[in-house]
Design a protein around this nucleic acid. Sequence first.
DNA 1: TTGACCGATTGCGAATTGCAACTGGTTGTA
DNA 2: TACAACCAGTTGCAATTCGCAATCGGTCAA
Lengths: 171, 171
Amino acid sequence: MTDARRSGCPINLSLEVLGDKWSLLIIRDMMFGNRRHFRELLTKSEEGISSNILADRLKTLLDEGIITREDDPTHKQKGIYSLTEQGIELLPVLAQMAAWGYKYLPVSEELGIRARLLSEGGPKMWAEFMDELRESHLGVKRRRRTGPSVGERLQAAYERVVARGKATAVK
Amino acid sequence: MTDARRSGCPINLSLEVLGDKWSLLIIRDMMFGNRRHFRELLTKSEEGISSNILADRLKTLLDEGIITREDDPTHKQKGIYSLTEQGIELLPVLAQMAAWGYKYLPVSEELGIRARLLSEGGPKMWAEFMDELRESHLGVKRRRRTGPSVGERLQAAYERVVARGKATAVK
DNA sequence: TTGACCGATTGCGAATTGCAACTGGTTGTA
DNA sequence: TACAACCAGTTGCAATTCGCAATCGGTCAA
């Protein structure tokens, strides 16, 4: 737990907080996978994070003010992790990173569909999704919207690809 | 040098390539600091990267197709590193990361000015800057522009802040 | 009361990092 | 021709971090 801070450059400072292979994946799962408990993050992680690393990163993200933790009223041991506004505003970073990865790296079809939709939707869609996150993580009420939310649309698209993949595989 | 690839998620794949504390700083210096030689990257780095890490990361970035290396005709030992199109398209990632860091982390005034201008300029300015990078790194000709380039404007703004800081310090 | 589940913590070998010194070669200058 | 400065890395080594598996003390439903 050293002081780090190699320079006052915004990119460097961001990397000192998020520059590892797990932190942004945790944020991703909280945003897109709606994971809010330790176990959910641990077992439903696509990449298989180990529990000590997860505990460590959650602590750091708490310290940095990117997430908060509160007790789950339904279970004395469970904690509910939520994104702060600061955490929610990492969405554009994730979106750009996803778009770049989608374009240049060997992305699987199922896991790439969200990146494609998010990229096509652009900053306007990101802003809408961030508003949805403000509602589910910060409790900020938002005016009624018609039609499915961005979160729902991304999830539906993902499930459609998975179903199609299964059908093809069976055939 | 294992195969990694923990999952086919675009964010994960991006992090497997760039998820450390140095890779994106090297890209940053190539983009904004116009560093093209090993020594420049080594000694003019704000954060003080060590030579073995720099050599290792340059190798990885080469392997990943994010940069290229060619011999410098003026010096038999010197290599010139250039960004590829894939590397240039990391600019939006850096820009978003810089904007987030600028907003939430203790950024120094000198090093934050670029982030502010880039954030205010938005995607349009990013696109223009990427075009400039295509010219200086890929040799792609671009039509004449009036006035100073984005790169020049960022540099001038930075120097203005540094000069002001010095004047204040002296006074 | 029992067994599944909960959020972590611990121990430990392996991999990565950071520092400093060094290598083998090139270049400009006298 | 001699020499110092410069060039792109490489090497050795100690310290840190990572990743896995096992475990811990507590909670919950049956």
